[in-house]
Amino acid sequence: MTAAEAAIRICDVSHQFGEIGQARHVQALKDTSLDIARGELHCLIGPSGCGKSTLLSVIGGLTKPTTGSVTVSGKPVRGPMPHDIAYVFQESALFPWNTVLENIVLGMKFQGVPKAKRRDRARRALEAVGLEAFAQHFPGQLSGGMRQRAALARALSLETDILLMDEPFGALDEQTRMVLGEDLSVLLSRSHKTIVFVTHSLGEAVFLADRVAVFSARPGTIKQIIAVDEPHPRKPSFMTALKFHALRDQLYGLLHDEIRKSIAETAPLRRRYDDTAEKNEGVA
C-alpha cells in the first residue's frame, strides 16, 4: 500500500505504562506497524490487555506512544484531530445532563461547526441511525443500544473521514449487537468512511471487517492480518455462509494460543494459593 492509499499509517508504535522497574510497569504494545486503507473497516482483535484499545487511542491522538509514529491523511498525529477523526467509546460517553440532540449539537460546537449548521446536521445524523423520534430524550431514558446509536450519530455529525470505535457494542446483549452490526454495515456502504473497530467478538469481526488484525498476547503486536472478501452492506445470511464459519474458525485458531498465554499470566497467583493450602494442611 502506498502512502497515498493509506488513510492511517502506523509505524513501529510501542507503548508502555509506567517506567521500567516500577511495579505498575506494563509493556502494552510492541513494534506495531499497520496501514489502514481509505474506506475500509479494519477490525483489531486480540486477548484482553493486548494493547488494541491503546493502539486506537494512539491513532486518535488521545495517548502519546512511547516510541513510533502515526500519520493520518499524511499528517503526523500529535493530539486529538477532531476534523479528521471521530470516536465512539465502549460505554456511553454521552453527557447525561444533555438531551440526545443537545449532545450532538455540543459535539459540533467542540469541533468548531458554525452555529447555523449544527441543528440541521444533528437531525440528519439522528435520521441516519433511526433515532429522530428520541431527539429530546435524555440518555438515561434510552436503552443501551439506543445510547450507542446516539453516540454513533454524534460521531457521524462531525463528518470526519475516519471513525474509531472502541468495542462500541461490547456492553450490549448479543441480539442488539447483531442488529447494530447490520446497520453499521449498511451505513458504511453508503458513507465510505474509514473505520477502525476494536472488538472481542470473533463473529462481529468477521461480519463487519474488510480486514482483521489479530494481536498477540501482551506485549501486543500484530500476529496476522486476515482479509474478509465480502462486499458491504452484509446481510444476516452471511452469518450462516460457509465462508463466515471458515474465517471465524481461522481467527479462533490464531487467537486460542494467545488467549492461553494471557490467562497464564495469572498462574503465579494460583501457585501461591496452593502453597498456603499445603501449609494449612501441615498445621492441621
Binding site: 491522538g61 488521545l62 486529538p80 477532531p82 471521530a86 470516536y87 460505554e91 460517553a93 453527557f95 467542540f110
Partner: peptide, 13 residues
C-alpha cells in the same frame, strides 16, 4: 467519569 472528559477532548473541546 473519565470517558466524558476524554470524549470531549476527542471532539476538540
Amino acid at each position: 467519569n473519565p470517558v466524558l472528559r476524554t470524549s470531549a477532548r476527542s471532539m476538540g473541546a
